[in-house]
Amino acid sequence: MIEQLQAVAGAGSVRTELARQASGAETIEIAGAGSFGDILRDQIAATVNSVKTADSAAMAGINGKMDTRAVTDAVMEAERSLQAAVAIRDKIVTAYLDMTRMAI
């Protein structure tokens, strides 16, 4: 997930296209990636899957069916995914609050 976010954030050569929806709102389309909402939805789904995988790995570790290192790796990956999701959420909330404070 981190690599995907870095690829999106650091891609200076990525072409962006502006598209107007029927409602008149603008969305930024990243070539081959879809809209911002699609990217967020995909990342949220990846985070949820990572947490579910870590949970099942932890249960397998408790039952003795999985190596301790594999359980630790799965839990650490889930933690990184969750931290990234929380950081993105915080940035979105901060941006929203900044926009609500703007004088019109």
Score class of each variant (00 low, 15 high):
Met1Tyr: 10
Ile2Arg: 13
Ile2Ala: 10
Ile2Tyr: 10
Glu3Met: 04
Glu3Arg: 07
Glu3Asn: 09
Gln4Arg: 10
Gln4Phe: 05
Leu5Gln: 14
Ala7Val: 08
Ala7Thr: 09
Ala9Cys: 09
Gly10His: 12
Ala11Leu: 05
Gly12Glu: 12
Gly12His: 11
Gly12Gln: 11
Ser13Phe: 04
Val14Ile: 10
Val14Trp: 12
Thr16Ile: 05
Glu17His: 07
Ala19Ile: 04
Ala19Tyr: 04
Gln21Thr: 05
Gln21Asn: 05
Ala22Glu: 15
Ala22Pro: 01
Ser23Lys: 03
Gly24Tyr: 03
Ala25Arg: 11
Ala25Met: 08
Glu26Arg: 08
Thr27Gly: 02
Glu29Ser: 04
Ile30Ser: 13
Ile30Asn: 12
Ala31Arg: 11
Gly32Phe: 01
Gly32Asp: 12
Ala33Pro: 01
Ala33Met: 14
Gly34Ser: 06
Ser35Gly: 02
Phe36Trp: 09
Phe36Thr: 13
Phe36Asp: 15
Gly37Arg: 06
Asp38Arg: 06
Asp38Leu: 02
Asp38Thr: 07
Ile39Gln: 01
Ile39Trp: 00
Ile39Ser: 00
Leu40Met: 07
Leu40Phe: 06
Arg41Glu: 09
Arg41Pro: 00
Arg41Gly: 02
Arg41Ile: 00
Asp42Ala: 08
Gln43Met: 11
Gln43Ile: 01
Gln43Thr: 02
Ile44Pro: 00
Ala45Val: 09
Thr47Gly: 04
Val48Trp: 12
Val48Pro: 08
Asn49Leu: 07
Ser50Phe: 01
Ser50Val: 02
Lys52Thr: 06
Ala54Leu: 07
Ala54Tyr: 10
Ser56Trp: 08
Ala57Gly: 04
Ala57Ser: 13
Ala58Pro: 02
Ile62Tyr: 10
Ile62Gly: 10
Ile62His: 05
Gly64Trp: 03
Lys65Met: 11
Lys65Cys: 04
Met66Phe: 09
Asp67Val: 01
Thr68Arg: 13
Thr68Trp: 03
Thr68His: 11
Arg69Glu: 12
Val71Gln: 11
Val71Ala: 06
Thr72Asp: 14
Thr72Glu: 14
Thr72Arg: 15
Asp73Gly: 02
Asp73His: 10
Ala74Lys: 14
Ala74Arg: 13
Val75Cys: 04
Val75Trp: 00
Met76Leu: 10
Met76Trp: 11
Ala78Asn: 01
Glu79Pro: 00
Glu79Phe: 03
Glu79Trp: 02
Ser81Met: 08
Ser81Arg: 13
Ser81Ile: 01
Ser81Ala: 05
Leu82Ser: 14
Gln83Asn: 08
Val86Arg: 15
Val86Met: 12
Ala87Asp: 14
Ile88Pro: 00
Arg89Thr: 03
Arg89Trp: 02
Arg89Ile: 00
Arg89Pro: 00
Arg89Gly: 02
Asp90Pro: 00
Asp90Glu: 02
Lys91Gly: 08
Ile92Ser: 03
Ile92Trp: 03
Ile92Tyr: 02
Val93Asp: 14
Ala95Lys: 09
Tyr96Asp: 12
Leu97Asn: 14
Asp98Phe: 04
Met99Tyr: 10
Thr100Gly: 00
Met102Cys: 03
Met102Thr: 10
Ala103Glu: 14
Ala103Phe: 07
Ile104Asn: 12
Ile104Ala: 08
